[in-house]
Design a protein around this nucleic acid. Structure first.
Lengths: 126, 126
DNA sequence: CTTGACCTTGACGTTGACGTCAACGATTAC
DNA sequence: GTAATCGTTGACGTCAACGTCAAGGTCAAG
């Protein structure tokens, strides 16, 4: 399939696909006229990249997952490099959560200080 | 005082001060030679801006606080516009926290799916 | 007089993942 | 043949809060 079809099926733009290729995440063989030609396995790669991006991974983070899939593994996350990225990401997310909780407390404190009558408006915990 | 001294006392760069001025957050009278001249109240403004930025506010968010201080209030957060920003920020922070918690769960789930033997490594709740 | 420390206004670089032209060739439909 | 729809490679724009030159003026000390 060509780039337009892959883009539609993956739900992204052709620009994004060319960008991924430029970043070395995916490759495409070329038809005689210079058009990019993709197979089903490329859709798989793009899908993996997308799902990683939507949970906050960078393209750089996605590299080992793509490599894992291309190495023949059924899951992009089953290689040790991918697992390492998972762990690092979890740590990063935990850090951000802690930072945000601290900020929230700080802002709430400033609000009650500056405006003693204002209701605190508790956050519901899940 | 001139820009260098204000920068030192506020703990920021002169570039940042010029940037704040360019964004209309602070103003400076000019000496005969063109140098910016600041007073103690400007240090107060800059300090307010800084403390807001460090808790995740944008310069745009800081505007009403600066206006509040310049209007003569002892606290930048005691004006209704500032309180509105406080509330909006709290909502934004809560949103981000929720998003991050969802992401964390998602990533943890993917990790255990891709690597069933890997220890979950629980996050400590505070 | 000249160094050195300060100040001035531009103006480009940073970061990530693309969006959005521009200017052009290829293919298909009619 | 020609219009519509695809594809190609650049290359600049986006967003925030500055960092980092560049090229030059100002001022006190020695």
């Amino acid at each position: 399939m060509r780039i337009g079809e892959l883009a539609r099926r993956a739900g992204i733009s052709t620009r994004a696909l060319r960008y991924y290729e430029q970043q070395g995440l995916i490759t495409a063989r070329r038809a005689a006229n210079g058009y990019r030609e993709y197979g089903e396995e490329d859709l798989r790669l793009v899908t993996e990249i997308r799902s990683l991006l939507t949970v906050g991974f960078t393209l750089e983070d996605a590299r080992p997952f793509v490599a894992c899939l291309r190495a023949g593994h059924s899951s992009g996350g089953s290689c040790p490099e991918s697992v390492a990225v998972y762990r690092r990401k979890l740590a990063e997310i935990d850090d951000e959560i802690r930072t945000l909780l601290a900020r929230r407390a700080e802002v709430a404190a400033q609000l009650t200080t500056a405006c003693p009558g204002c209701p605190p408006r508790e956050q519901e915990k899940k």
